[in-house]
Simulated assay, not measured.
Amino acid sequence: MRRAKHPKKEVEQALRYAEQHGWRVEPGGSHAWGRMYCPRNVPECRCGEFCIASIWSTPRNAGNHARQLRRIVDNCVFREAVGAECAEESNDGI
């Protein structure tokens, strides 16, 4: 089943970006539109501080909120580790 779209197009694009990088987006919540979860919620991942991010339904500035969500995905320790693993795998095949 597909998730509901976010009403702000900039935020929706950021959510799609997160999903492409393995993050899980779950709509629903009390004060937020939803949350996005890191693919690996491990203690080494900055003590779990950035493993869950709230998605606001009506951010004051949708562009800034979208950039913040992308920055969370880009700075994920797990994402950097995946990039290193991919590089190692490509070198093993030589």
Rank of each mutant, 00 (worst) to 15 (best):
2 R>G: 09
29 G>E: 09
88 E>H: 07
87 A>T: 14
12 E>K: 04
94 I>A: 12
84 A>G: 06
39 P>M: 08
91 N>Q: 14
43 P>E: 14
27 P>Q: 06
48 G>S: 11
28 G>K: 06
42 V>P: 01
55 I>N: 05
51 C>Y: 00
23 W>R: 01
15 L>Q: 04
10 E>H: 05
84 A>K: 14
94 I>E: 10
58 T>A: 11
13 Q>K: 03
24 R>P: 01
68 Q>V: 01
26 E>C: 03
1 M>L: 09
20 Q>P: 01
67 R>Q: 13
2 R>Y: 05
91 N>Y: 06
46 R>F: 03
6 H>G: 13
58 T>G: 03
6 H>Q: 08
53 A>Y: 02
71 R>K: 11
37 Y>D: 07
24 R>V: 11
94 I>T: 14
50 F>G: 05
78 F>H: 12
21 H>W: 07
81 A>S: 11
31 H>C: 07
50 F>V: 08
22 G>V: 11
73 V>K: 03
60 R>K: 13
59 P>L: 08
28 G>Y: 08
6 H>E: 09
23 W>Y: 03
50 F>E: 11
20 Q>N: 13
78 F>L: 10
44 E>N: 11
52 I>V: 15
40 R>D: 12
20 Q>L: 11
79 R>W: 02
17 Y>E: 02
77 V>D: 00
68 Q>D: 07
68 Q>Y: 12
65 H>F: 05
33 W>C: 00
61 N>D: 15
4 A>G: 11
31 H>D: 11
81 A>F: 05
89 E>C: 08
63 G>Y: 02
41 N>M: 06
54 S>I: 02
5 K>H: 08
21 H>K: 11
91 N>S: 14
62 A>I: 07
71 R>V: 00
56 W>S: 12
25 V>R: 04
70 R>W: 02
56 W>D: 09
90 S>N: 09
45 C>G: 10
48 G>P: 01
68 Q>N: 11
66 A>E: 02
38 C>F: 00
64 N>P: 00
77 V>W: 07
8 K>L: 01
92 D>V: 04
88 E>W: 01
22 G>W: 01
91 N>L: 15
28 G>F: 08
39 P>F: 05
5 K>F: 06
62 A>G: 05
83 G>T: 14
8 K>D: 15
56 W>I: 03
92 D>R: 12
6 H>F: 03
58 T>R: 06
83 G>E: 15
13 Q>L: 09
58 T>C: 04
26 E>F: 01
93 G>L: 13
72 I>C: 04
80 E>P: 00
33 W>G: 00
52 I>E: 03
15 L>A: 00
47 C>W: 05
27 P>H: 02
89 E>K: 09
54 S>E: 12
87 A>F: 03
35 R>D: 00
66 A>D: 02
40 R>H: 10
89 E>F: 03
65 H>Q: 11
2 R>E: 15
18 A>S: 10
30 S>A: 14
35 R>E: 07
83 G>M: 13
57 S>G: 13
8 K>A: 15
40 R>F: 07
34 G>N: 09
25 V>P: 10
23 W>A: 12
27 P>L: 06
28 G>S: 12
14 A>S: 09
54 S>A: 15
70 R>Y: 01
